[in-house]
Amino acid sequence: MALNKHTDQSPDAPATPSEESLRLDVSMSTRLLNSMKILEYSGHVSARLPGGDTFLVQPQNKSRAEVSSEDLLVCDLDGKVVAGTPGIKPPSEVFLHCEIYRARSDVNSIAHFHHDVTNVFTLVEDVPLLPFKNHAIRWKSGIPVHPDPAHVDDAERGRGIVKTLGPHHAMQIRAHGQIVTAETVRGVFIDSVHLVENAEAAYRAYSLGKPKPLTEEEIESFSHSFRRGHHIRKLWSYYTLGAIRDDVFPEAWTSGA
């Protein structure tokens, strides 16, 4: 079964994905994360469009379990809807997407969600979320915590998020949720899954006794053998084929341009 063509930082991938393929990837990632109880009733996945100054994001009131390619809005970096169904609003926290895309040219996709176990690490003193699983090498530089739990509902708060995120690939908002960034939509989906897996492993480790997170040397050893493009393709195939079997989305979506 052929999956839709997409850039994933591998030599055989096209340099720039089409808007059609991005719409499919955002829709599939949203439904997948919802089915895995990561996104659920709130949260959103976005994708930067070619050109860099606009992005795709789901409407505010569309169920994450039902979002489709044609539902997605096109927003500019000021949060204004420039294409989509008239009168339909973007998520109230659209500004976190706007400001991250404005500040980080390396970021082409963003996921924001509210996973309870992951969020627990923002609610206690001196218990940081550290790398406990090998795929947590993605966050070897750290997972910062933004101190303001408020919804990111204006550009100023969006710029505060950017300041906390810095050069990292994931962050937490205290008592609120998570933000994951990546170079592709499929990458942001896989990273979101791994962030939650890592948090759940850390939670169990802390509950058993003194934790032993991965050392810098161990992380470095994983880095030498880790092929990100291959890893993304492998897991995307695994999760999408399972989603077709479970009727999360139709098989036709995986053969798009």
Rank of each mutant, 00 (worst) to 15 (best):
V67P: 00
H168G: 10
H224A: 13
F55Y: 14
F113K: 01
R138E: 12
W139G: 00
D191F: 00
F226Y: 15
S92L: 14
T85A: 15
V145R: 06
P50E: 05
N108Y: 09
Q178V: 07
Y206P: 11
T164K: 13
S207Y: 07
N134T: 06
D71W: 03
P14D: 12
S10P: 02
K5N: 09
V193Y: 09
E70A: 13
Y41P: 13
E99Q: 15
S42N: 14
N108R: 14
K210A: 13
V67N: 01
V248M: 06
F95R: 00
D53F: 06
P213D: 11
G84I: 10
D154P: 07
A2Y: 10
H146W: 12
G51D: 13
K89V: 11
E156H: 11
R245Y: 10
H97M: 11
S223D: 14
K163E: 15
H151T: 09
F55Q: 01
Y239F: 13
A155P: 07
V196Q: 08
V188E: 01
D8S: 12
E19M: 06
I244M: 06
V74T: 15
L49P: 03
M28A: 15
G160K: 15
S21L: 01
S27L: 01
H135G: 02
W236K: 02
N34Q: 11
A175W: 08
G209Y: 07
V57T: 04
F132P: 05
K62Y: 06
P50G: 06
K163W: 10
Y203P: 03
A182Y: 01
V45I: 15
S42A: 15
E218L: 02
A136T: 00
I100K: 01
D246F: 03
D106R: 09
L39A: 08
V81C: 12
V196W: 02
M28D: 04
D8L: 10
V127P: 11
A257R: 02
N4H: 14
A103Q: 12
S69A: 12
F121C: 12
V145L: 10
S69H: 04
P17C: 07
D247V: 02
F222A: 07
S223P: 08
L33N: 00
V152R: 02
K133F: 01
N134Y: 05
